[in-house]
Design a protein around this nucleic acid. Structure first.
Length: 424
RNA sequence: GUGGACGUAGCUCAGCUGGUAGAGCCCCGGGUUGUGAUCCCGGCCGUCGUGGGUUCGAGUCCCAUCGUCCACCCCA
């Protein structure tokens, strides 16, 4: 288990035992977005490094130290996407999707971030991503948030709570930032090392420091909600009243700051107490300036990302176990003659009963061995074809899940009898 | 990137103060000639994460390295 067959650190295989949970989640997500009228979009996993630097922000942790960046043979600097919004915004621009049009898009796939792995945090992880382009809100903002709330109900996930905040426009945010820096400069001696470092780069992040010693200083800091421009204030008020009208539970967290530079106005985050330190399961916000900043027509937009692995963990924790798709019928056919006939019979049955799952006892073995495999497959019925049945032109049907007499019927009627028995 | 814990068969784990590895599950075979899941009997499976070192001798001690987990950081 050592040498050359190790997977890359932080990049995991999803094995058949787990895939049922993933598929259940993915199917539910597709159902959800269909209900709300979102269209799927698929974009490359690799983009020009520059795209991420310009959208996410040069001085964010993601860009500074977490990107998988490499040069291709032509010398271009490329990067494995650390998040999806930048690529989708780029796709909208380069495909001319924005000429006065609106788009509701969703996407799912792997993202890459070079961080130290721990529970719920991996170097290759998967995100479900939703973006609404061309909508000013706050109605989409509310609809999007409510849509996520519906997803939790569909999935049976209960240990999540919603926080919302507004970051205002870039201008009001910049003004607030200056005031914040002024405030923290006044208390610089009391700041811890992390916070002092953030003071230069991203002072807003000091607000959600986990260091208990910082709480007093943070508590006295000016709040962004007191510094919103009038339009953003109205936008946020309308969002809150729309949320209230839907009855969804939320709390306003004036210290909720997102890690990516492009957010403006509405930001939100769903967190859980069931996942340890990596408690964010879904978060997003409005990015009205991003598309213009990337060179597209100025287009308001909002989106969010959900961590698939984290939600899968929530489902597992909630005891969600999708039913294993066991075969309906397992064909037991020991002996060369019966095996050959059985394989052909299996094909005829699949033809006649395409909605049924029919397993053939591959690999031979005697009756005992084949019945054991039939049982372990979880099949409801065993279809028995041995020399004796061959000689008489019949097959036997045996119930594996309940006590019942084994029955026989002519081979030619096998599909009809199976269909009837499975209907019982 | 920083700190801590851990790394023994496919899986879950045992192995006291050093003397060249065990159990359960799984898998395979058998318990009379063609019938599973129970029960009984038997069998397969490990360079004890890897590489050094100490020692007459290391799974057991030391160092390094890789990996996992937890926290910080960050975030989905």
């Amino acid at each position: 288990m050592t040498s050359g067959v190790q997977p890359i650190r932080g990049m995991n295989d999803v094995l058949p035992a787990d895939i049922g949970l993933w598929q259940h989640l993915e199917a539910t997500l597709r159902e959800l977005v269909a209900m709300y009228g979102y269209d799927e979009i698929r974009v490359p996993v690799v983009e020009h490094t520059e795209l991420f630097k310009r959208s996410i922000g040069e001085y964010t942790d993601i860009v500074e130290k977490e990107m998988y960046t490499f040069s291709d043979q032509g010398g271009d600097s490329l990067t494995l996407r650390p998040e999806a919004t930048a690529g989708i915004a780029r796709a909208a621009i380069s495909n001319g999707l924005l000429r006065g049009q609106k788009h509701k898009l969703w996407c799912i796939g792997p993202m890459f971030r070079h961080e130290r792995p721990q529970k719920g945090r991996y170097r290759q992880f998967h995100q479900f991503d939703v973006e609404a382009l061309g909508y000013e809100g706050p109605d989409v903002d509310a609809e999007m948030i409510v849509m996520i709330g519906r997803l939790w109900r569909m999935l049976g996930v209960t240990r999540v709570r919603l926080q919302v905040n507004s970051l205002g426009t870039p201008a009001s945010r910049a003004a607030y930032r200056e005031e914040l820096v002024r405030y923290f400069r006044g208390h610089e001696a009391a700041l811890d090392a992390d916070s002092r470092r953030r003071l230069g780069g991203n002072p807003l992040r000091i607000l959600d420091s986990k260091n208990p010693d910082m709480q007093a200083i943070v508590a006295g800091a000016p709040l962004i909600l007191d510094h919103l421009d009038p339009e953003s204030r109205a936008h946020f008020a309308a969002l809150k009243s729309a949320l209230r009208a839907t009855g969804i539970d939320y709390t306003v967290n004036p210290r909720l700051v997102r890690g990516l530079d492009y957010y403006s106005r509405t930001v939100f985050e769903w967190t859980t107490d069931a996942l340890g330190a990596q408690d964010a399961v879904c978060s997003g916000g409005r990015y009205d300036g991003l598309i213009a900043q990337l060179g597209g027509e100025s287009t308001p937009a909002i989106g969010f990302a959900m961590g698939i692995e984290r939600v899968v963990e929530l489902l597992r924790g909630a005891g969600v176990v999708p039913v294993a798709r066991a075969p309906d019928v397992y064909i037991v056919a020991p002996g060369e003659r019966a095996a050959a006939a059985g394989l052909a019979l299996a094909e005829r049955l699949r033809e006649a009963l395409p909605q049924r799952r029919i397993a053939f006892g591959l690999g031979g073995g005697n009756f005992k061995a084949q019945f054991r495999r039939a049982d372990r497959s979880g099949a409801r019925l065993a279809l028995v074809l041995g020399d004796s049945e061959m000689d008489r032109g019949v097959v036997a049907i045996k119930h594996l899940r309940r006590d019942a007499e084994q029955i026989e019927c002519p081979v030619a009627e096998a599909h009809a009898r199976l269909a009837a028995v499975l209907e019982e």
